[in-house]
Design a binder for these strands. Structure first.
Length: 493
RNA sequence: GGUGUCGUGGCCGAGUGGCUAGGCUCAGCUCUGCAAAAGCUGCUACAGCGGUUCGAAUCCGCUCGACACCUCCA
């Protein structure tokens, strides 16, 4: 019996705007596709948040016993900078600015992306395909769409005919837009266009002579349109109809809308049962923006080498901070927010680390099985990590109360509590155990141990001038002594 | 202008038609030689105005405000 047969998972489907019970197409198997980054610069912190949300979703689905195939692409064929016909793609532009090959740009920032994600303890996806590795599949897809009459060729470029498609299909069903409204509100673009209608989008673009990234096709030497790669790669590895498609909220329109249209036009069926969108990350109440300088990249946040935050934050603290809000809410990244999360996170860790030293009783005064199910209920409700964390803090209270003797637990319940917390904190939330309190194994601990002993002797002799001197000078060196009932421990700041 | 999301206590941030998450801050207490650390206890909020209801912060309408998308962006 797998866990998913006992735990009823609900998830919010952007398509219906409601929470729905999760039913995979094939029982026990889940296919999930998430739109990955365009690797033309350092990974954006907002990107990290989005992928972290899906990392936790991936982890929880796996924990429930599903066999999950998680596909997250790398976009290494540049998208055009704008919708006009004459445009430079982002990767080519960056390559020109840095005077190196486009593929050097791709390589450099793919490595950066992986490094940052590893730092944040992400699980690797099952497949990480690249756009340039699937040009043939994209060309085949375009042929299908043309054959089915939903695309037209102009001057070596191919465009998707949105107006024709909308006559027999519902273009806009994901983003709740009406084609008529789009027609009404489309701005006039400067460059002259080969498109029949402004709402049409490119499937294939003929390359200008100076364009470096180009491939041969039946229509021209050129490059694929920017919505096509996800359709090609998702259906190649997950089939024409799969379970979950995710991405950032900003991709809902037009990117995901176009993916639906492409798939329906090419394959005659809608591609995805559950669309999931992670919301945006703001910095100090404003969207991150390079032009205003209101931006911080993951490396700067981790190193503390920035002018926005008061200090460096560890990957788990940042992860914990992000997990304290729902993936569907806008999250505001602030220094005080991170400080608060840091304190709470260490309190949680310290409680977990004292679990093994709890003294068992013959009976339990707390129902741990109920508490455990409450943790599952939180995650089953559209991956509600804030409620899960609230439950984990309930456990912190239990642990401290047992430690104080006001509540009791049997040894079986202590083990159950320990295993459950471990599962949720480390396996599902993906946090790492970083206790601030030293265990006393390395040389620093030995040295501080000597000072603690000297201080204890001074205190026993009521030589408080000496004992306070030891305490204060250690504090100045960044070592804080903590007096407890069972002796003195210390933490390094 | 259009579409969508949302406005919660000092701050962050969940959730729900009646049982009033959680974290941080703050206050009091315990512990301590004094502190710190740790723990315990306390702090009853849901933008405004109408309506539905026995009862709404939760449903509906309007107003105000924020954010996102509509143009590259996770």
């Amino acid at each position: 019996m797998q866990l998913f047969q006992q735990q009823k998972l609900y998830l919010y489907n952007s398509l219906s705007g409601k929470k729905e019970p999760f039913k995979p197409i094939n029982e026990g198997y889940v296919g999930m596709y998430v739109c990955g980054p365009t690797v033309y610069s350092n990974v954006h912190l907002g990107n990290v948040r989005t992928f972290m949300s899906f990392d936790v979703i991936f982890r929880y689905l796996k924990h429930l016993g599903y066999k999950v195939r998680y596909v997250r692409n790398i976009t290494d064929a540049g998208h055009l900078e704008n919708d006009a016909d004459a445009g430079e793609d982002k990767i080519t532009k960056k390559a020109r600015l840095e005077q190196i090959e486009p593929m050097e740009i791709v390589q450099r920032y793919t490595v950066d992306f992986h490094n940052i994600l590893n730092t944040f303890n992400f699980l690797p996806p099952s497949i990480e395909p690249t756009a340039t590795g699937h040009i043939i599949e994209q060309i085949e897809l375009i042929k299908n769409i043309i054959d089915n009459g939903f695309a037209y060729v102009v001057n070596g470029s191919v465009y998707f005919d949105v107006h024709k498609f909308n006559k027999t299909h519902d273009y806009g069903k994901l983003s709740k837009r009406k084609l008529e409204d789009l027609i009404h509100n489309t701005r006039e673009l400067d460059g002259q266009s080969d498109k029949k209608n402004p709402q049409d989008f490119a499937l294939w673009k003929k390359a200008e002579p100076q364009h470096i990234m180009r491939w041969p096709s039946p229509w021209s030497d050129g490059f694929p349109g920017w919505h096509l790669e996800c359709t090609a790669m998702s259906t190649k590895y997950l089939g024409d109809h799969f379970d979950i498609h995710g991405g950032g909220m900003d991709l809902k329109f037009p990117h995901h809308e176009c993916e639906i249209a492409q798939n329906e036009a090419a394959k005659g069926q809608t591609p995805v049962n559950y669309w999931m969108h992670a919301n945006m990350l703001e910095l100090n109440g404003q969207r991150m923006s390079k032009t205003t300088g209101n931006i911080i990249n993951p490396g700067e946040l981790l190193s503390g080498n920035n002018k926005i935050m008061s200090k460096a934050y560890s990957p788990s603290v940042i992860r914990f901070f992000m997990m304290q809000s729902s993936y569907r809410s806008v999250l505001d990244l602030t220094d005080s927010g991170l400080l608060g999360s840091e304190k709470g996170f260490y309190r949680l860790m310290d409680a977990f680390n004292t679990l093994e030293s709890l003294k068992p009783s013959t009976r339990s005064s707390i129902n741990i099985a109920d508490w455990k199910q409450a943790c599952y209920n939180a995650m089953n409700d559209d991956f509600n990590t804030p409620i899960l964390i609230a439950n984990l803090f309930e456990a912190v209270k239990y642990i401290n109360q047992v430690k104080e003797g006001s509540e009791t637990l049997t040894s079986e319940d202590i083990v159950l509590l320990q295993e459950t917390i471990h599962t949720f904190i480390f396996d599902i939330l993906g946090l790492e155990n970083v206790s601030k309190t030293e265990s006393g194994t390395d040389k620093l601990s030995a040295a501080v141990g000597v000072l603690i002993k000297l201080r204890q002797e001074a205190r026993a002799n009521k030589d408080f001038a000496m004992s306070d001197k030891i305490r204060d000078e250690l504090a100045e060196a960044g070592i804080q002594l903590k007096d407890g009932k069972d002796g003195t421990s210390f933490s390094v700041n």
